[in-house]
Amino acid sequence: MKVIGLVAVNVFKESVRDKVLYSIVAFAVMLMSTTYLIGQLTAGQDIKIIKDLGLASISIFGLLIAIFIGIGLVWKEVEKRSIYTLLPKPMRRQEFLLGKYFGLVLTLVINIAVMTAAFYLVLALMRLLEPGIDAVSAAPATDAAMLKAIALVVVELMLVTAIALFFSTFSSPFLSALLTAGLWVAGHFNSDLRNFGAVVASPTLAQLTRAMYYVLPNFSAFDVKSQVVHAQAVPASYVALTCAYGLTYIALVLVGAAAIFARRDFK
């Protein structure tokens, strides 16, 4: 466990000093700030627009970090040969892999925390500038329920990171990015796969789509942004169950990644 922590802290330290990451977060914060201006264009709906754009920004920029840093985690170490000095140190390959994963998750969580703080700051400023804004909306501007949506975004991105790491243990960064993004898109349409069986005549195809529904990660389950923006209740039990689903999936993906990584030759 100690080794995993040491590797994770090192990944975090490297990420923090990488200017690319700063640019992504700075761009996200800037975008959230401009949502105020965009909101001004839509009379009566401005607070909803700002919330929608803000949550979408957190999700999309988090996704960019998860995929593009996730696919490079192992690949960069192998390509630059830094793994040659690290793996002969007293550690298991699985510890190295988990350390890399948790290091990126730590980076991701801190970046999302910065984006969330910026998001709430924009909303608080709006409340100050337009005191009656809460009265025209179903939920207050700085509604704490949005944190539930952000928590689920964090778990979703942890799963994306695990998938990116899984692919990066055996394929090139380009292919890893493609496969991870493909799974993310497919996962958001997962519920359609379940219903696909009802509209096709072939029982084989119906069974196949049903099997895919169970195997593919159900990313749409993590998306409650629309509900919180429209002040619809998101039960705590739903959040807990979805988190448990996400964490179980993450564990399975990491076990698979560790099994592949443990036998890989670093030529």
């Binding site: 040491l6 090192n10 490297e14 040969r81 830094s82 040659y84 000095t85 550690m91």
Partner: peptide
């Protein structure tokens, strides 16, 4: 172990790298 043409983490200093390896 010293590998052929070693390469390390770009953003760490030499002191940090050695301290990191020592921590392992």
């Amino acid at each position: 172990y010293l590998p052929e043409n070693p390469y390390f983490y770009d953003y760490l200093t030499a002191q940090e790298l050695l301290e990191y390896f020592a921590s392992l």
